[in-house]
Every structure is written in structure tokens, then in C-alpha cells.
């Protein structure tokens, strides 16, 4: 009984102080909702950032996984949450693409959130089974055009990074190939390793170690410059493929109506977290780097989201595939 009384008392004091000014934010644990299940790349990014943010804010930053429906369930949860800065959302590029992929979203992507800042932009790699004939990207494009009925492109399901990148590759080379969807990156990568499918385009977080280990072949990275972790892999434009520059960017959001002082505090905290050496080191091992301080701002994230919605709308509509 004592424990119950004690926790009741603690809760009461918590309640009375929560009306205090935003100056003293944060006064209790903050929860970042990840709209995917635990263990995936977005979850990993979030946990690393959350830990660093805890240090800066002096309060525990917890991670809650609300997976399902391509990330839209978790986003909807945060859109409906109280706008007090204690419930945040860390979502990737899917925030922009779901606006087109889902025709019936329960929230208005552009008007349901306050922006805190960009977290990281993970480049993609165009990879293939290790015994595929072509030796460079040019050869691959020719090969794909000549064998478009038999070349298979794996992806991790509708709306996944690999699905978006695959669509972009096919639209860049103006050749539809045979798409083979999987449930998640794991099984797709397994079949690529086993040579059951031909090519895939996925985040460096999933492919770097395999490329370094020589179990798959890399044709291009989708970044403007070559990556430190994969110095031998050319960029798309180097090899003559324009408009094949894509990254899986992650952003941190709060529900619409969160006080601007709170958003600023969170944005500062995000910048501090992204400058944390542990975060930088871990991100580097994943083949990515934290967004620079000037991008970890509300304005930069807003511009990114708006630009990306416009960019992907025609690509998705041309493919004619929707997720609902």
C-alpha cells in the first residue's frame, strides 16, 4: 500500500508542476515514437540520438516503437498527441512518400506537425548479386535494357527505402524491370546473397558490410560524392546516371501547436546530440553521418519535407502503386 501511496504522491507533484512555464522544459521523461519495429535502421538511429539527447536535456528520452502500415500508425499517434513536447516522432523519408502512397491518411502531413530538425541523410547503394555479369554501372544499364523481362529488382515492401530507390532507378533508366517484393530487408538481402534475385537498391546501413565483405557487388552510391566507407564505388552522376541522387533522410517532429520555446529547446538538444562523438562514430560505422547543425533546424526540415513530397508524387503516381 505504501508503494501505491508513494507513487500517487509522486504523480500528484508531477501534475502540479507540469503547468509551469516552458522555461523549465523538460520536467519529465520525453518519448520519441519510432513508427517501425525495434531493431531496424530507423529504430537504431533513434536510440542513438535519444541517448545523446537525454544527456543534454537532463531527462530520460525514451523510445516507443509504434510500428505498422508503413509508419503511418506511429505518425498518426504523434499527430494526435498532446502538443507539449513530451511526445515526438522520428520518421524517415516515408513521411513524404506516404502522403502520396496512402490516399486516405488520418492526418494532414503538412499541417499536423511542428518541425524540430533533420537528423541524418543516409545514402543509398545500387547493389547486385556478386556474379552478375556487368562490371560497371554503364554496363548494368545496358544489360538491364537488353534483358528487361528477366532482370529482377528486389525490394523490402511497398514504401520501403529499397522500393522507392528501385522505382527511381527504373524511371532514371526508363526501363521497367521485374519487381520482386519481400517482407522486410532481411529476406530481400538473403535472396540477393543467394543469387535468387539480381539487383536491389538499399540504404548503406544495410549494405555497407556486405559490400565490404564481397558478398554482393556495388554499382553506384546515390550521393553527390563518394562515401568514405566505400571509396571504390562511384556516384550515379559520375557514371552518367543523372537524377539518381536519393537519400533516406530522417527528421524529428512534434505535434502541431507545440510552444515555440519548447521546439527551440528540442532543436538545440538535437544539434547537441548530433555533435556527440558517440553518435558520430556509430553513424559512421553505418555508412552515414549526422546532419550538420544548420540542417538540424525546423526551417531545414520543413523545406526538405515539402520538397520531397513534390519530388516523389510524380514518381509514385507513374508507378501506379498505392498502399491502401
Amino acid at each position: 500500500m505504501k508503494a501505491l501511496l508513494a507513487s500517487l504522491a509522486a504523480a500528484l507533484t508531477l501534475a502540479t508542476t507540469s503547468f509551469a512555464s516552458a522555461q523549465s522544459f523538460p520536467e519529465r521523461n520525453i518519448t520519441i515514437v519510432v513508427p517501425f519495429s525495434a531493431g531496424g535502421p530507423t529504430d537504431t538511429v533513434t536510440r542513438l540520438v535519444a541517448e545523446a539527447m537525454s544527456k543534454d536535456l537532463g531527462q530520460q528520452v525514451l523510445v516507443e516503437n509504434v510500428g505498422g502500415a508503413g509508419g503511418t500508425l506511429g505518425a498518426a499517434r504523434v499527430a494526435d498527441a498532446e502538443a507539449d513536447g513530451y511526445t515526438l516522432l522520428l520518421h524517415h523519408i516515408g513521411m513524404a512518400t506516404s502522403a502520396t502512397l496512402y490516399r486516405k491518411l488520418p492526418f494532414d502531413t503538412l499541417n499536423a506537425f511542428e518541425y524540430i530538425g533533420l537528423v541524418t541523410e543516409v545514402p543509398m547503394t545500387l547493389v547486385a548479386r556478386k556474379d552478375l555479369e556487368p562490371t560497371d554501372l554503364k554496363g548494368l544499364i545496358e544489360y538491364a535494357k537488353a534483358n528487361k523481362d528477366t532482370v529482377t529488382v528486389a525490394n523490402a515492401g511497398i514504401g520501403a527505402a529499397s522500393h522507392l530507390c528501385g522505382m527511381l532507378f527504373m524511371s532514371a533508366i526508363e526501363t521497367p524491370l521485374v519487381t520482386v517484393p519481400y517482407k522486410g530487408t532481411g529476406p530481400a538481402m538473403t535472396d540477393l546473397l543467394g543469387g535468387q534475385v539480381d539487383i536491389m537498391c538499399d540504404q548503406t546501413t544495410n549494405t555497407t558490410k556486405q559490400i565490404q565483405g564481397g558478398t554482393i557487388k556495388a554499382y553506384a552510391v546515390t550521393a553527390p560524392e563518394r562515401l568514405d566507407v566505400l571509396p571504390d564505388v562511384p556516384t550515379g552522376s559520375e557514371a552518367g546516371l543523372k537524377e539518381f541522387d536519393v537519400s533516406i533522410w530522417h527528421g524529428l517532429y512534434a505535434p502541431k501547436g507545440t510552444p515555440s520555446e519548447v521546439v527551440d529547446r528540442l532543436s538545440k538538444s538535437l544539434q547537441a546530440a548530433l555533435a556527440d562523438q558517440n553518435v558520430i562514430d556509430r553513424f559512421a560505422e553505418l555508412g552515414t553521418e549526422p546532419s550538420p547543425a544548420e540542417d538540424a533546424t525546423p526551417a531545414a526540415l520543413k523545406a526538405k519535407l515539402e520538397g520531397e513530397i513534390d519530388r516523389w508524387k510524380p514518381v509514385i503516381e507513374a508507378a501506379g502503386q498505392y498502399a491502401d
Binding site: T44, R47, L48, T208, K209, T215
Partner: peptide, 15 residues
């Protein structure tokens, strides 16, 4: 999948 997530957070990317 959870184990892999844990490894990555620890700085070991399984491959």
C-alpha cells in the same frame, strides 16, 4: 532482428 539492432547500437554492424 532485435539482436542486430542491439549490435549496431554497440558499434558492431553484423555482416
Amino acid at each position: 532482428a532485435l539482436m542486430i539492432g542491439a549490435m549496431i547500437i554497440q558499434g558492431i554492424v553484423p555482416g
